[in-house]
């Protein structure tokens, strides 16, 4: 009895190391780049149960936060390339090089699935002296530097949108950085800042309740969640070339992972992300579902990196030029 046990044990151990085709032989580990309760955490924890059903194994999720996600990214890159460690992350790694944070970005990883992208909107305190984006621009031009914009630190969504605005318009404001878009939106309701760019999902409930007002959608078309909000290109077509732009969420493995493992993961995530409940959750929060992988996802990532890196660098937020890393100008 003992002998068979030991034998079976040794055999199964050997099998699991041999990268057999019947991946996955054990539970996977999902490393989430952001903390519990954040939007990345939320999206990942709600897609995982559907994917687990496809894979037949559980995904053990851990939040490894810190350094705008550098710590999680670095950790996954030091794990074996066997597909058992997934990086569950947002757009941030595409800016690590320009921000001088790390030499890693998504070119070191294989996109198993880019799940969704968020749509930025521009919202304002309900008592602010402007009601549309056009009025905001006029107001800012009359009071340069006096209007306070809620932000989340360099490289975050508000700072990038702010940089895009000032790259195409005469738009001088004072950015006050907060810990995330949630706290910034709260501070805006308390009157600490006048307006801010935010991701639609974070602001939508407050807009619906009339606690804040929406000035524009930073996209080419209106969103079904907030049909009354005007797309920014309606008044300022010069933004067309930068759009669509937005934060995104994706699941990645190391690029050296064997192809059959990649294929299994891609299939499982594709099916899991197509689940109705997950899609409803995304659209309720105003996220645009993408559900893309492989080359399609790679070209999306490349384009995103090129647009954003140069915007960030030209606005003086970057530490290093994108040129150093061969990131092409858009």
């Amino acid at each position: 009895m003992l002998k068979t046990l030991v034998g079976a044990f040794a055999l199964s151990m050997a099998a699991s190391f041999a990268m057999a085709n019947d991946f996955p032989k054990q539970d996977l580990q999902g490393v989430i780049q952001w903390g519990a309760g954040g939007s990345t955490d939320l999206v990942m924890r709600s897609v995982a149960p559907h994917v687990e059903k496809e894979l037949g194994r559980s995904i053990v999720m851990t939040n490894k936060t810190g350094g705008v996600g550098v710590i999680a990214t670095q950790f996954v890159s030091t794990q074996p390339a066997d597909g058992y460690t997934l990086l569950m992350s947002a757009e941030n790694p595409q800016l690590y090089k320009v921000m001088g944070l790390s030499n890693l970005d998504y070119s070191n990883f294989y996109p198993v699935n880019v799940l969704a992208r968020g749509v930025p909107i521009i919202v304002a305190n309900k008592d602010a002296p402007f009601n549309t984006f056009k009025e905001l621009v006029d107001y800012v031009q009359k009071n340069p530097g006096k209007v306070r914009m809620g932000s989340t630190g360099p490289g975050g969504l508000p700072s990038v949108v702010g940089a895009m605005l000032s790259s195409k318009l005469d738009f001088k404001v004072t950015a006050v950085p907060f810990d995330g878009d949630g706290p910034a939106l709260t501070a805006m309701q308390g009157g600490a800042v006048e307006f801010m760019p935010a991701v639609l999902g974070a602001a939508v409930e407050h807009v619906k309740a009339g606690r804040i007002k929406v000035l524009a959608i930073f996209d080419k078309q209106a969103s079904p969640v907030l049909p009354d909000a005007r797309p920014i290109t309606a008044d300022y077509p010069q933004f067309e070339s930068l759009l669509p732009w937005g934060p995104f969420f994706g699941v990645f493995v190391k690029s050296e992972t064997p192809d059959d493992v990649k294929a299994k993961l891609v299939a499982a995530f594709k099916k899991g992300a197509n689940n109705e409940a997950f899609q409803k959750l995304l659209s309720d929060r105003g996220y645009v579902s993408m559900n893309m992988s492989g080359d399609e996802a790679n070209s999306f990532l490349k384009k995103w990196q090129s647009t954003t890196s140069w915007i960030v660098y030209d606005a003086g937020m970057g530490k290093k030029s994108p040129e150093e890393f061969g990131i092409p100008k858009p």
């Binding site: 079976a8 151990m13 539970d27 580990q29 194994r57 053990v60 851990t62």
Partner: peptide, 20 residues
Amino acid sequence: QVVLPEGLIPERAIIAWIQS
């Protein structure tokens, strides 16, 4: 579900084996 440092012992493989 705190993944403690695994080191030399292939824990996940053992758990999977016990499960199967």
